[in-house]
Nucleic acid binder design. Structure first.
Lengths: 244, 244
DNA sequence: ATGTCAAATTATGCATCCGTAATTGACTAA
DNA sequence: TTAGTCAATTACGGATGCATAATTTGACAT
């Protein structure tokens, strides 16, 4: 929250992904500036940054609009994320994990194990799971020895649901959540085993499967409910949601 | 070349990758502005954009410096590029190539075939080969149906030697160039066959091998000469060049 | 009522100015 | 000689004003 530009980016990004800004509405330098109480100069930087992140689309001469994501877009972004995280896991298996990575990953696994061994889960447990998931994935990406992987991931990491931490809860789907967490945990264990065993091929392919899981299993285990949930956040185009 | 920011980015990027700016020198908003005859406002935007591209590093409070790339960095960027282009090729094989893609790719193959069937190559042929190579790779990436692939590639595409077009010529290495072009052409043919045969696995794995080729084969077929050449461009750190 | 043209509004891009923070360099004291 | 403090320069972030381009609106004519 130091500079106006940084906080503007954070602020606007939050408003966009939470659907607090009407998708239809145009955003200009002035309107964004007024909204956040800053002048046009930092507002312009913030908008152009969000455009390069892919969250805004520039309407030449008429401001920006929020980029509408279709469900297909989310799947495509996930595909890229899976592949990138896959090479991160593969690299880590080749190199051997650092002490730092080992500590973080084993901590994450301990956290998720504690959660799935319970009978029922509350919102609180889901939040902890998300945190653990975030730790697991960033430990692998950050210590894989190839900065370009993390750099490329940053671009698509801001798209909701795609990010590792965004293990979005679906209302009234506690059982389905539990199932997803159990599956996720088991995959974490398997991938970590592959890494420790220095098996890059297995680590890569398992991570590739796993990183694509949130969106794939959303369809597989939950079905339309997930898409409908996404729609309400304004992230997904109405048109993409199956008619009921 | 319309706005000052755009031309400043292009200008500065060119100067950086061509080694026209001393790597040691600090770049501030004012110095960049003076250099290009623009004020600090567009200079600031340009610098921050180049930073997000990974070509500059921000020295908090003291301007920017040119990011030094090690040979290892180039290899890592290539690794990411290979994987991303791999999924593009795989997707194209799954979907079946569009008419547009087919035309572009077959044109590219015809161009490279014409070149390698000659006895000797001049600078001119090498330039044509680069163009054909560029056509081939961008046809696959642009028509693969996943925009995020191209978007992610843009980030690392600016790193010299990594970009498909950057099939840099090494002085006095005409024979080695010829070999690389022949190998490259044959891989293009093979990948295209895999795509047309709707074999995503083969298309992906071959493309992954092929996209990593420039830097891998540089070592394999040319050896130290290549690294020394890179050094003279200022792209690669002196320290990385093997002692002779 | 519709189409066309002009004026006004809107939005952007860029330059300049100001306030602030940080670094550097010089001077003094131990 | 060295260390510490203070001042000056440097650099940045942000606000504002102006020029330009584009879009929209409104008026007028057909």
């Amino acid at each position: 929250m130091s500079t106006a530009v940084e906080s503007a980016v954070t602020e606007l990004r939050g408003m966009i992904v939470n659907g607090e800004l009407p998708i239809s509405e145009r955003i200009t330098e002035s309107s964004a500036g007024n909204l956040l109480g800053i002048s046009r100069t930092p507002a312009r930087s913030a908008l152009s940054q969000l455009e390069s992140e892919g969250l805004l689309i520039k309407l030449e001469g008429r401001g920006y609009k929020i980029r509408p994501f279709s469900f297909a877009d989310l799947e495509k972004a996930t595909e890229v994320r899976s592949v990138l995280e896959g090479i991160a896991a593969g690299r880590l298996a080749s190199m051997g994990p650092s002490e730092e990575a080992t500590v973080a990953i084993e901590k994450s696994i301990a956290m998720t194990e504690a959660i799935i061994s319970r009978d029922a889960v509350t919102k609180r447990e889901i939040a902890v799971y998300q945190e653990a998931n975030e730790i697991y994935h960033s430990a692998i990406v950050d210590t894989c020895g190839n900065d370009f992987v993390g750099q490329s991931l940053e671009r698509i990491a801001n798209i909701p649901i795609i990010a590792p931490g965004a293990f979005t809860e679906v209302e009234g789907m506690a059982q389905a959540e539990m199932l997803r967490m159990t599956v996720g945990h088991s995959q974490h264990v398997i991938i970590w085993d592959a890494i420790r065993s220095r098996d890059p091929v297995r680590a890569e392919s398992m991570m590739r499967e796993h990183a694509g899981a949130p969106i794939r299993y959303a369809k597989l285990f939950i079905g339309d409910g997930y898409q409908r949930k996404l729609m309400t956040t304004g992230i997904v185009n109405r048109e993409d949601v199956p008619k009921t």
